[in-house]
Simulated scan of single mutants.
Amino acid sequence: MKILITGGAGFIGSHLVRLLLEQGHAVTVLDDLSTGAKAHIEGLPIGLWQADIREKAVTARIAAAHFDAVVHLAAQTMVDASLRDPHFDAEENVIGLVNVLEGARLGGTRRVIFASTAAVYGDVSARDLPVREEQALAPLSFYGMTKVAGEQYLALYKKIFGLDYVVLRFANVYGERQGDRGEGGVISIFAKRVARGSSITIFGDGGQTRDFIYAGDIASGIACALRTEHACRAYNLGTQTELSLNELVRVLGKAAGKALAPAYAAPREGDIYRSALSNAAARRNLGWTPKVTLEEGLRRTYAYVKETAAQ
């Protein structure tokens, strides 16, 4: 297939580019390089468009290329940033999405894969964990809200224009080439500080839980979504496992060969307390399952951080 990946020079995108090339697809990356980096995809046989999805000109460029599929990863991904600047969050996550969808529609694209998030669910009760896709959406941040809006745009584009889509609600993604942004950024932040011999700080009591999933497993989930017959719905991509931040620190310390003692600070506004995503629907309809254990994923991530810090 001829595939466009928006945000393809970013953290998750760089994992996906490599996988899709291995599978024999023709890949073009659209990225403004504000958070992504050319170094993440340097030397790979791809097309690179340096452009901002907020600019309407991207619509015509996408339409003219007639992609078979578009994977839309480009987004503002930080809860705290969405609260500080709701205008930018909406421009990136709503206007940017509409520009991409219009290009796909006009260019005859058959399917759009949309990166959504566990943040669309908000705080759910313990009895509803792990969260299933049928759970009511109740975001606690503008970031989560713009992702809900994006999902609704996709549903209407299917209803009005017949454009197929798959929504993928990511758990907390981590791995090589991650910046200190987004929901899984805590691992990148902690790993870099540990590698430098600096202290780490947990915002809250450390009992808050997340569902941490390795970026390579997310890439394989996207690849499955590109070819599934069960499209036009949302799927969770997660490990279906709750891990407290205190336990994360213990496992990271094991990967780093160090005993870690975090400091604690006041919790941040908009952060949910407990999160874990059911992946039963993705297993059933996408034929996908996560393969990389947390221990192995953290080992790879820490090794990458150590290597890049030494360069």
Rank of each mutant, 00 (worst) to 15 (best):
A255G: 07
A255E: 01
A256P: 00
A256C: 01
A256L: 01
G257Q: 00
K258G: 10
K258S: 11
K258N: 12
K258R: 14
K258H: 14
A259P: 04
A259C: 14
A259E: 08
A259F: 11
L260Q: 01
A261T: 14
A261H: 09
A261R: 11
A261Y: 13
P262F: 05
P262Y: 07
P262C: 05
A263G: 13
A263Y: 12
A263S: 12
Y264V: 08
Y264W: 10
A265C: 06
A265S: 12
A266R: 07
A266N: 01
A266V: 02
A266G: 01
A266I: 03
P267F: 11
P267T: 03
P267Q: 01
P267M: 11
R268N: 14
E269W: 14
G270A: 14
G270I: 09
G270H: 13
D271Q: 07
I272T: 15
I272M: 12
I272F: 10
Y273M: 12
Y273C: 08
R274W: 15
R274I: 15
R274E: 15
S275D: 12
S275W: 00
A276H: 02
L277Q: 05
L277D: 00
S278L: 05
N279Y: 06
N279C: 14
N279D: 13
A280H: 12
A282Q: 00
R283D: 06
R283Y: 08
R283H: 09
R283E: 07
R283C: 04
R284I: 11
R284A: 13
R284K: 15
N285T: 09
G287C: 13
W288T: 06
W288Q: 02
T289W: 11
T289D: 13
T289P: 10
P290K: 04
K291E: 13
K291R: 11
V292P: 05
T293W: 09
T293C: 04
T293E: 06
L294R: 15
E295G: 14
E295K: 09
E295L: 09
E296V: 13
G297E: 06
G297F: 00
L298Y: 08
L298E: 02
L298F: 02
L298R: 03
R299F: 05
R299I: 05
R300I: 03
R300Q: 07
T301C: 03
T301W: 03
T301M: 08
Y302A: 00
Y302G: 00
Y302F: 06
Y302V: 02
A303G: 10
A303P: 07
K306F: 10
K306P: 08
K306Q: 09
K306V: 12
